[in-house]
Nucleic acid binder design. Structure first.
Lengths: 353, 353
DNA sequence: CCCGTTTGTCGAATCGATTCGATTGATTCG
DNA sequence: CGAATCAATCGAATCGATTCGACAAACGGG
């Protein structure tokens, strides 16, 4: 209920002076500063966000658009939401969470009513309609994940490098027959970046190693998956390692492995690419984690950098070009392509038997 | 960039008339309404949220405070965030996501800068400092979970009824020796509502059935948990059923059961109380799910109901008392205590062996 | 000593919507 | 026919901050 006017009266100055004390954008004498600060403290004054926003045309809010998963929900997305929020706070931004319950309607509404300064799109898809909304409205944004068609800043794990690394490290551990359980077929069909790049990585690694790498396309149906897997495991010569990118069904998958009478890692070494919640208790397996914190930090930064200057901030200084890591394989928008790192225990060699 | 003034000019009316068309709070002739609507459509006008908020003192935003988990993060919380957001949207509210990265500072900042009209606190704890912040600032709010000391509206699963139901149903299936794996000891020590009420439920059910119910206190350390469990499983007469409330370590727990040479459900029937992400693949077990959607709907409603009238809305009509479901065991604040329901397959009877 | 500069503060305009009287015609009634 | 009533719309004030130009006092230099 207390406003800048109340503070001004109590400190015996004009409201504008209080504003200058707060913003520091004009020189204020030490005496006045102290008097104003005292009044602020005594009254417990805090500027109203809506008044600031109205005047400055800056909300200091990012819209975070949850994945377009009809009904489904991936546990990792919650962690992204938390980490993006923390990363935004570092730059003084808050985060407005948006679901896809009314399609792109929510995003359009938030952008047009200027509830946020920029948007972060989670789990972007090929030809994502959300991207089209941002383009149409000229609203700044950045992507978690990558799509070649979206000319927007983005960040992603280098899935090709990740799968290639996992396969090569497995081969380096001595395995000569390696299975790669790719993303599910419907993900490949939807042209999700991680699915396509992951397959590329497996193929690339296969060429460069002495190991025989065989790709098993995964499937959203656990029974289909289990069937394909047990078939592949029964092949001769016997595969000694399994690199898994399709993690959602990992528990079922490990059940299938156990059902085949195989112990991990003694009979079959399992290496993961991607991330699952800690509750799954798979942290004892060698893996390449999805760098959630790193990606969140990067995407918050990219989104905030994409925001233009506010109303009064019409300085004539030319804007610095945004530095992007060297990578010529993607479009010209600023981006952070994150290199994979192995985590967890070392990859067990194949058992001599 | 288009404002209500632009629309007014194009339609040949005053800005106030446009506002009345939008709000419908005064009678407008059909001709004028059409002209204004045409101008709105042609210009793609959408009112600026900050201007509305400044005038009306209503943000139509709820602050959603994530759990105070230092470092950790529970997968189910992401689903709560999504569902609360959807539920808020039904009432025309958006959701600002807040982490606990700067303690209660974020909540205090958002409340004082009036970025939101009310707060929803997730996973409230005993003597939760966030509750104290709301009280101190007189900021409306509602809780996911329940704490007797907080005089705030809340919603929760009736954990006592849930555990009691699970135990009774297990006994009804014929089991005569039942283990109850309670919440972890540190959760009980922290006086978390679900932990205390769950224990009460087990004790209450034990009194009313022919079965022998034995409580195993769980532990955050998987090794301690496994040791206690295998000890309890080795007791004579042999337990035939296990009711689990501490789900976080369920994969490790099932490992321990398997290590003891027991098959589920043939040798040991496992019944769950609470919820885990679908990725865990435990939907084939009999269980009582945490009613996330129901709780989210309720808490959004409670938070919004706690918001006072806006600035211009000074109608002299007395406010209706909020209806609360009958339940005399909790404090006077409005609340929704949700009754448990069994889900999944029926509970298998003990094997005759 | 007077004029130009610097320093610190003030007053007023502004952002974009909402809302309360006031006003203008049209209509009704004695 | 003039006064009272009513419907529809307008104009202006307001919400709470920011920011620009103005201005007074202090200061410095010739």
């Amino acid at each position: 209920m207390t406003t800048i006017k109340d503070v001004a009266e109590r400190a015996g100055v004009a409201p504008s002076t209080v504003s200058y004390v707060l913003s520091g954008s004009r020189k204020i004498s030490e005496d006045t500063r102290r008097a104003v600060q005292a009044a602020i403290d005594e009254l417990g004054y805090h500027p109203r966000a809506s008044a600031r926003t109205l005047r400055s045309a800056r909300t200091r809010v990012l819209a975070l658009a949850a994945p377009r998963v009809p009904g489904a929900y991936r546990a990792i997305d919650g962690r992204f939401a938390i980490d993006v929020t923390d990363a935004a706070r570092v730059h003084g931004y808050d985060v407005l969470l948006m679901t896809d319950s009314d399609g792109v309607g929510g995003l359009r509404r938030v952008a047009r009513s200027r509830l946020a300064d920029a948007a972060v799109l989670m789990a972007v898809e090929d030809r994502d309609p959300r991207v089209e909304v941002l383009r149409e409205l000229g609203f700044p944004g950045a992507l978690l994940g990558h799509d070649d068609h979206a000319a927007l800043p983005w960040t992603d794990l280098d899935w090709e490098a990740a799968v290639a690394l996992a396969v090569r490290e497995t081969a380096a551990a001595g395995h000569r027959r390696i299975l790669f359980l790719s993303s599910a077929e419907h993900e490949v069909a939807a042209r999700r970046g991680y699915a396509l790049h992951g397959l590329d990585g497996a193929r690339r690694a296969a060429v460069g190693t002495a190991a025989d790498v065989r790709v098993i396309p995964s499937h959203r149906d656990p029974d289909v998956l289990a069937r394909r897997l047990s078939q592949a495991l029964a092949a001769r010569p016997v595969p000694t390692a399994l690199v898994v990118q399709h993690l959602i069904l990992l528990p079922r998958l490990l059940d299938a492995v156990a059902a085949a009478g195989l112990r991990v890692p003694h009979d079959l070494t399992v290496v993961l690419v991607g991330s699952l919640p800690d509750e799954l208790g798979v942290r004892h397996l060698p893996r390449i984690d999805l760098p959630v914190a790193e990606m969140s930090t990067a995407v918050a930064r990219l989104a905030i950098d994409a925001i233009g200057p506010g109303r009064a901030d019409r300085s004539p200084t030319s804007r610095e070009p945004v530095a992007t890591p060297a990578s010529s394989m993607f479009s010209g928008a600023p981006h952070h392509l994150i290199q994979p790192r192995m985590a967890g225990p070392v990859i067990a060699p194949p058992s001599p038997g």
